[in-house]
Amino acid sequence: MNNEQETMNYGMTSCARFPLLLKAMNSSMLVSAHNLDCLFVISSDGDDLRVEHVRLQQLLGIALSDDQQRLSLAAYHQIWDYRRITEQSGDASSANAFSGHDSLYFPCGSITTGHLNTHDLAWGKEGLFLVNTRFNCVARAVYGKSFEFVWKPPFISELVAEDRCHLNGLAMKDGVPAYVSYFSGTDQHYGWREGSSFQGAVMRIGDNQIVADGLSLPHSPRIHNGYLYFCESGTGRLWRCKENSLPASRSDLELVAELNGFTRGLRLVGDMAFIGLSVVRPAKDGLKRHVDMPLLHMQTSLASGVIVIDLRDGSEIARLTFSGALNQIYDVELLFGSAAPRFVEIQSDEITEIFAL
């Protein structure tokens, strides 16, 4: 997409390689933008990008099952569940259901959780796991309940809706929750808002061991090819460490990339990392906090978008840049084997005439 397109007060431009990369992968990309209440669906025809959006209130985490047949989205007080249907499967009864698209994502239900401030989501062996930021715990999404408790950090003394440590990121391993990221090891209401930005950590769930600390506002831990990766958002960095070397001192961490944006949202595939970038936003309550965050003192302007990095040498492969109001990215995901997906809007009229059989 060579010319900036303005819709909903946002713009989107890409380098020439970005649409070529998606086309070569036969994939599409999902990006959650919580400040715009949108899921952006970005695909390619080889020369240009196609962009559609689905409106979902305060959207944060995105989770795909391993077979890519179930998609879950954390939107304010609900978890929305979508099913993937293809024309070949014959599971949609409307003749116009696909309209030139190669797959259809159909909203088939939701769980009302109340406002848990759910951040990361992940499908595992025992269902859908969520980071329940407001209650400082990892939980399971269960129909008929707001959540089912799974685990909390050992420094959290009680299960209360106080967002004490700002638990946010979740890494899965072998289908079970393995690592989490949080901003500060505090046990007071909104305690993470006080003091330095460098109080963050990544913790291993199995033994409650802190494996990396002294981090500036970490997000998006992921396990990939024997490494633990995570974003140190306040510095714009992506780090990794061999999992068998954990816990890691600062000298054990390997810097993969340092970028000009708040790194949050990470999808790893092969030798590539798709990384979400955001600008630093003012606190909603108007108060100043984390004034020592390195990104606040960068001489270059901060960018928002998605950058693709070569994990072998940290070089940039491709970049998608956002502008205007599209400046707060939470999660990035890839739909494999779907170069032109269609998402059915929950509130649209067309949903009344599409039937998943």
Results as ranks from 00 to 15, higher is better:
residue 100 G to H: 13
residue 49 L to P: 00
residue 100 G to A: 13
residue 95 A to V: 13
residue 75 A to V: 11
residue 74 A to P: 08
residue 55 R to A: 12
residue 106 F to W: 11
residue 61 G to M: 02
residue 88 Q to A: 15
residue 103 S to M: 01
residue 61 G to N: 09
residue 108 C to L: 05
residue 76 Y to G: 07
residue 66 D to S: 14
residue 92 A to P: 06
residue 52 E to P: 00
residue 59 L to H: 04
residue 58 Q to I: 12
residue 45 D to R: 03
residue 86 T to G: 08
residue 99 S to R: 13
residue 45 D to I: 03
residue 44 S to H: 13
residue 83 R to I: 04
residue 69 Q to L: 05
residue 77 H to I: 06
residue 51 V to I: 12
residue 61 G to L: 10
residue 97 A to W: 09
residue 86 T to P: 04
residue 67 D to Y: 04
residue 58 Q to Y: 05
residue 51 V to L: 01
residue 53 H to W: 08
residue 102 D to L: 10
residue 100 G to N: 13
residue 92 A to Q: 12
residue 44 S to C: 08
residue 70 R to N: 05
residue 90 G to W: 12
residue 75 A to K: 08
residue 52 E to A: 02
residue 85 I to M: 02
residue 86 T to M: 00
residue 99 S to K: 13
residue 98 F to G: 01
residue 99 S to M: 12
residue 61 G to C: 08
residue 49 L to N: 00
residue 47 D to E: 07
residue 44 S to W: 07
residue 53 H to T: 04
residue 79 I to D: 03
residue 52 E to Q: 08
residue 46 G to F: 06
residue 75 A to I: 14
residue 44 S to T: 05
residue 96 N to Y: 09
residue 84 R to S: 08
residue 81 D to N: 14
residue 101 H to L: 06
residue 103 S to C: 03
residue 44 S to F: 08
residue 69 Q to C: 09
residue 84 R to H: 10
residue 62 I to S: 06
residue 90 G to E: 13
residue 76 Y to H: 15
